[in-house]
């Protein structure tokens, strides 16, 4: 299976949540070793965001189990299942709750292959959701940089329904642990045509979602839309911005990023995660190291403010298209 096939595949209009649900159904049909653990994932609830809807009905509650509220044991049980030959999915309801599962994710899943000289690969998929300020500061944080900083686990963050399904299916076949990060703001906000059948999008392949010659906007997740909006506004001002959706943060597709910036000679890295020590710091640094002499201006980062996520809608910690436009204008 690949992204491209000779005959156009049958498609259907899906939200990201529906596309993820479709990916689960297809992967679990194809591989009876896939087992899903998480809070409230069994029908009729089908998960807090309905991404596991129908799974327990179709595959049974042995393979799709609602668990006690115990993130550490959800992740630890997944690690044990993987060591026992299964392909477990550990659903962590909100990304913030991964704090309670980090020992198993960081100290065990991510390190087990290495610590045993390759004898104990631990292919678990941790799925989680970034909430929003509607829930306050403990259900809204973007913590991907923490996990990127832990060698041994893939970090995946789709921006579209199509990518969400294809990347999830790659997670569920990966020989390595994966963290599949969804954003609540993307799960139901937009529909698109998604292939009905199975397909996999390889890790480490960024997607140039808008070509441009003047500046490269490197981003992922919710900020792909922000950057596309900014690129539209910039085009009206005669500035052609190229927008790169990284899709996976580990492995990170540096060749695509560097090739783009080599052409445009300017770059802005945009993400919701806190700018300070965020993923953009690594990306910006790498661009400077590789392309210092090509750059017409320093790489700029636009990330979340160094604050917990505030509740009131009068306060926003996140990047906006206006801010991205302003930062690009300052580079020109």
């Amino acid at each position: 299976m690949s992204e491209m096939s000779a005959v156009p595949p049958e498609t259907s209009e899906m939200t990201m949540a529906a596309a993820i649900n479709s990916g689960f159904h297809l992967a679990m049909e194809a591989d009876d070793k896939i087992v899903v653990l998480g809070e409230d994932i069994e029908d009729p609830i089908g998960g807090p965001f309905k991404t596991s809807k129908g799974l327990s009905t179709k595959f049974g509650t042995r393979r799709v189990r609602s668990t006690p509220i115990a993130e550490g044991a959800i992740a630890g049980t997944a690690v044990g299942l993987a060591l026992g030959g299964y392909r477990p999915v550990a659903e962590i309801m909100f990304f913030d709750f991964i704090t309670l599962a980090l020992d198993q994710v960081v100290n065990h899943a991510a390190k087990f292959r290495y610590m045993t000289g390759g004898a104990t690969p631990t292919p678990i998929t941790v799925t989680t959701v970034i909430g929003s300020s509607h829930f306050g500061a403990q259900h809204a944080q973007s913590l991907e940089a923490w996990i990127m900083h832990t060698p041994g686990i893939n970090v995946v963050m789709p921006a579209t329904p199509h990518d969400a399904k294809g990347l999830l299916m790659t997670c569920l076949r990966s020989p390595d642990p994966c963290l599949f990060i969804q954003h609540s703001g993307l799960l139901y906000s937009r529909k698109e045509q998604v292939p009905v059948g199975p397909y996999a999008i390889p890790f480490g392949q960024a997607n140039i979602v808008r070509p441009g010659r003047d500046v490269t906007l490197v981003t992922y997740g919710t900020q792909v839309a922000t950057c596309l909006e900014a690129a539209g506004a910039l085009a009206e001002q005669g500035v052609e911005a190229e927008v790169i959706d990284l899709r996976t943060l580990v492995p990170l597709d540096f060749p695509t990023v560097l090739a783009s910036v080599e052409r445009t000679r300017r770059a802005v890295v945009v993400h919701e995660a806190t700018q300070f020590c965020g993923p953009g710091a690594e990306i910006s640094s790498r661009i400077h190291e590789e392309l210092f002499n090509e750059l017409l201006a320093p790489v700029v980062r636009v990330g979340g403010a160094y604050t917990p996520v505030p509740f009131s809608k009068a306060l926003s910690a996140y990047p906006t298209a206006e801010k991205v436009v302003r930062k690009v204008r300052e580079l020109m």
């Binding site: 630890g76 049980t77 044990g80 993987a82 060591l83 026992g84």
Partner: peptide, 9 residues
Amino acid sequence: PIAVGLAMA
């Protein structure tokens, strides 16, 4: 918890 997962397997 890892043993729990192995036992579940």
